[in-house]
Design a protein around this nucleic acid. Structure first.
Lengths: 114, 114
DNA sequence: ACAAGGTACCTTGCGTCGCAAGGGATAGGC
DNA sequence: GCCTATCCCTTGCGACGCAAGGTACCTTGT
């Protein structure tokens, strides 16, 4: 990997945040896997792949933060839709405050506040 | 590890940012290893340990982003001081813009903007 | 009816990096 | 000569994002 590699740089940044971005998206409405990948990509800067998303969704399900239901699709194979559990909502709320603290700290150190 | 673990949560967040926080601190004045750990801890939310710092400093040195000089200490063993190289300054500048973009994206998804 | 293509789900193996734990070397106080 | 403090560094582990590859389902074209 080169010394200056934008992809790797943002990949490192995504660590620990993708998880909660997924929860935040599911807080608005239920979504299925491919849809989550698309929304994060076009949503800005959180471009990711299915190889990231599905293991992540499995973890969230295992931790009881999301629940799933299979639904027929208008066309194509069935889809597994995800929704937030109460635990998931609590985790999201908790993370929002953690994020703001962290962001402020980094901004102060980097001098990127404002 | 529990489902809600603040330490692990912020550990994940630190990934990819500690590196540039170190560069930002060295942009102000030269520092040695233990000093960097202390400043990051009291600087806010970026608490870390020597087990993180020294491998990190080795990487930065290997990548040509920082340079080092040994200095005698007023008391105790000698200290290895670090300074930014031109490459390090460029990397820091580049990261600041990456960070602002990333931060804005997360803020928009989480609804923590403002 | 069958092939081809598209959609959606999931798994395997790898690399990176923060961390806890442990180790060693130097200097000063007693 | 010890004991403590300071400072540097290494080893082993675990977590996770990702590329690559694989399977199953549905539709469409011929």
């Amino acid at each position: 990997m080169g010394v200056s590699d934008d992809a790797a740089l943002t990949t490192a940044l995504r660590r620990g945040t993708i998880e909660y971005c997924v929860l935040a998206l599911l807080d608005k409405r239920e979504l299925y896997g491919v849809e989550l990948v698309q929304q994060l990509s076009t949503g800005l800067g959180m471009t990711t792949s299915e190889g990231t998303m599905y293991p992540l969704l499995s973890r969230l399900r295992r931790n009881g933060r999301i629940a799933t239901t299979w639904r027929e699709a208008p066309a194509g194979p069935p889809r597994r839709y995800y929704t937030l559990t109460p635990d998931g909502e609590a985790a999201l709320t908790h993370f929002r405050t953690e994020w703001v603290v962290f962001r402020s700290g980094v901004d102060r150190i980097l001098g990127t506040e404002l």
